[in-house]
Write a protein that binds this DNA or RNA. Structure first.
Length: 435
RNA sequence: GCAGGGGUUCCCGAGUGGCCAAAGGGAUCAGACUGUAACUCUGACGCGAAAGCUUCGGUGGUUCGAAUCCACCCCCCUGCACCA
């Protein structure tokens, strides 16, 4: 699937994926006239990326599908410094060895999204520590620093709130971040012929810095493009739930939880997200939107979105697991699950814990549910019991059952003699296994 | 450094000796409605099944009794001074 530069840009534009571009439209021509190398940076600020990084990550893939060569840069060096862009406060530095371990994880994660075996435009993963660690201070100050005007830098919107706000401030270290990222672009241009950098729109200042520096250092014209930050219609932060961040690492956010996250997308956002997060052609997305308009009940878009993104991130197996769990839990027919199914649910990321048969006597349901993390405090469980919102293997439980843990979880009631599926409210599930 | 203002439960923010586990709003959880939605309504919302226990920057003190008064300490903000 190769498309021309203008087709690619048009598709990105139709999807709402272009926030800003440098070069007054010259970029289209640049992309049309051959296979170009582009890069996007990902700083190791945690042991996994979260879904906020998905838009640029998928953008790299979109470019590759259009015949260009993507380079994923993992910021082993910049991750040691901390990007001040639009951050309200100075960040605390992570230990070097921690960052190093994160770099490896992020490298692997990033690699799932781009193809390393496509010949001419095969992807690459690089680490900016490889060149930044080598440069010495004086060389850096003379060759790189000299090209940056502090006057310009302090006028950047991205550091404004740090400079304006009393008591916030910005350290010299973080202030240097922009120079490092700019130097990355110049180096990638020199070493790999990279001519385009993409990133979130909060990176605009850093990207244009790199464009300028590359021209000054290498005498080459290069381009920058930013992607929109994902904004939810209700104004709340995208990618966070009550339970926490949605990570790409299946060990941190199970494919089931990941799938559920997308499934719960608001109607007001779902078509936008289909454009942002899937590779479905625009025509198809528009058709879905049109079809959903006349649907009275549940829209189809959330299902499609959840399926597409889960498969992209967790593969066919992850999607399969997520759908299997979803089907089991929300069909209301848990007794139809086989023993193997229940075993599998545990493997698939279903929240689960063991119950010691002998120790059930003195316990209470409220304490049990709080301990396993099903609720934050016993009071929530009590509230749910009071409203008959708790089901153990489909049987309703009330406050009067609170002290009767042993009865509620008696082997006679268990599925296959050992499993209990507890449902609290409409959406919270937990699997218990007697041991 | 000097002068003034402030630190309250997840967040914002009332409270200025007992009626305070602490108004109000937001967030969150649950119920009804529904589409595992949105909107709306209801309830919960420090911990505890309860009795009760622990909170209002920290430490001591005054009082029968303190988030509220006093002392010292820590942190933040606003002016001024210093660095220039």
């Amino acid at each position: 699937m190769t498309m021309s530069g203008s087709e690619l840009i048009a598709d990105l534009q139709a999807r709402g994926l272009i926030a800003q571009m440098t070069g007054d439209g010259e970029l289209e021509e640049h992309l049309s006239s051959g296979c170009r190398t582009l890069y996007c940076g990902f700083d190791p600020t945690a042991d996994s990326l979260h879904i906020g990084s998905l838009v640029p990550l998928l953008a790299l893939r979109r470019f590759q599908q259009a015949g260009h060569k993507p380079v994923a840069l993992v910021g082993g060096a910049t991750g040691l410094i901390g990007d001040p862009s639009f951050k309200a406060q100075e960040r605390k530095l992570n230990a070097a060895e921690v960052v190093t371990s994160w770099v490896e994880r992020i490298k692997a994660q990033v690699s799932q999204f781009i193809d390393f075996k496509t010949g001419e435009n095969s992807a690459e993963v690089v680490n900016n520590l490889d060149w930044i660690a080598k440069i010495d201070l004086l060389t850096f100050l003379r060759d790189v620093g000299k090209h940056f005007s502090v006057n310009n830098m302090i006028n950047k919107e991205s550091v404004k709130q740090r400079l304006d706000r009393e008591g916030a401030g910005i350290s010299y270290t973080e202030f240097t971040y922009m120079l490092l990222q700019s130097y990355d672009f110049a180096e990638l241009n020199r070493l790999h012929g990279c001519t385009l950098q993409i990133g979130g729109s909060d990176q605009w200042g850093n990207i244009t810095g790199g464009v300028d520096l590359t021209r000054r250092l290498n005498g080459n014209k290069v381009f920058g493009m930013t992607l929109p930050l994902v904004i939810k219609s209700d104004g709340t932060k995208f990618g966070k739930t009550e339970t926490g961040t949605i990570w790409l690492d299946p060990a941190k956010t199970s494919p089931y939880a990941f799938y559920q996250f997308w499934l719960n997308t608001a109607d007001a956002d779902v078509y936008k997200f289909l454009r942002y997060f899937t590779f479905l052609p625009m025509a198809e997305i528009e058709a879905i939107e049109e079809a959903d308009e006349v649907v009275q009940g549940r829209k189809s878009a959330q299902d499609i979105l959840a399926r597409e993104v889960t498969e992209l991130v967790h593969g066919a197996e992850g999607l399969d697991a997520a759908e299997r769990i979803t089907e089991a839990l929300f069909s209301g027919e848990i007794e139809q699950l086989t023993e193997d199914d229940l075993e599998q649910l545990k493997q698939d990321g279903m929240p689960a814990s063991n119950l010691d048969k002998a120790g059930l006597g003195g316990q209470m349901l409220t304490g049990l549910f709080a301990d396993c993390g099903l609720v934050k405090a016993g009071r929530e469980a009590k509230d749910a019991l009071g409203r008959n919102a708790v089901f153990v293997n489909g049987l309703s439980k009330g406050v009067e059952d609170n002290m009767k843990v042993a009865e509620c979880f008696s082997p006679a009631q268990a599925l296959y003699g050992r499993f209990f599926m507890v449902k609290l409210g409409k959406k919270k599930h937990h699997l218990f296994e007697l041991t």
